[in-house]
Design a protein around this nucleic acid. Structure first.
Length: 149
DNA sequence: AGCCATGCACCG
DNA sequence: CGGTGCATGGCT
């Protein structure tokens, strides 16, 4: 029940929106401990979902969707959990691949989220949304997108 | 198992 | 009509 718990996910390129996929759903592994962080979704119906409110450090609230894509149980091919609708959060926090989102749940079932950036490299986005990664001394652009078209 | 990709619906 | 998310398929 109301047990406090925290999980974290290191963002992939796809999670950070760098692959061009218009799907910001991060994959949630089917591990008991991690699934127990989220509300239980019944497997007797197709693609059940729960909308969850996460509060960030500034007090702002973000609504994400925890979805069980389970059409495999109904003749399809999917059987996985995802946490979707994180696009705006990831964009506004300017998160990049390798950064980590920390999801916490307190004893009362309230959720909170905080982003943890890489400590070694100060990866950031420049004004044009490009990912810039600091390696050792110099700055290097490791990915370009979005500038032209 | 995890990440990448996409047609379509919806909405501003 | 461009951006976003749904639901699903694909690739490794």
């Amino acid at each position: 029940m109301g047990e406090s718990l925290a999980i974290s996910k290191t963002l992939s390129a796809n999670d950070a929106g760098d692959t061009g996929a218009h799907q910001a759903g991060i994959l949630v592994p089917k591990e008991e401990k991690i699934l127990s962080f989220f509300p239980h979704l019944a497997a007797d119906r197709r693609n059940p979902r729960a909308h969850l409110l996460f509060r960030d450090e500034s007090g702002a609230e973000w609504e994400f969707a925890f979805i069980y894509y389970n059409n495999r149980l109904f003749g399809g091919t999917r059987n996985e959990y995802r946490l979707t609708r994180m696009t705006r959060y990831i964009r506004e926090q300017a998160l990049v691949p390798g950064d980590e989102v920390l999801l916490s749940r307190d004893g009362h079932g309230s959720y909170s989220i905080t982003a943890r950036r890489l400590k070694k490299s100060t990866a950031r986005r420049d004004a044009e949304g490009r990912v810039v990664l600091q390696l050792g001394g110099g700055w290097r652009i490791i990915e370009l997108h979005g500038g032209g078209k």
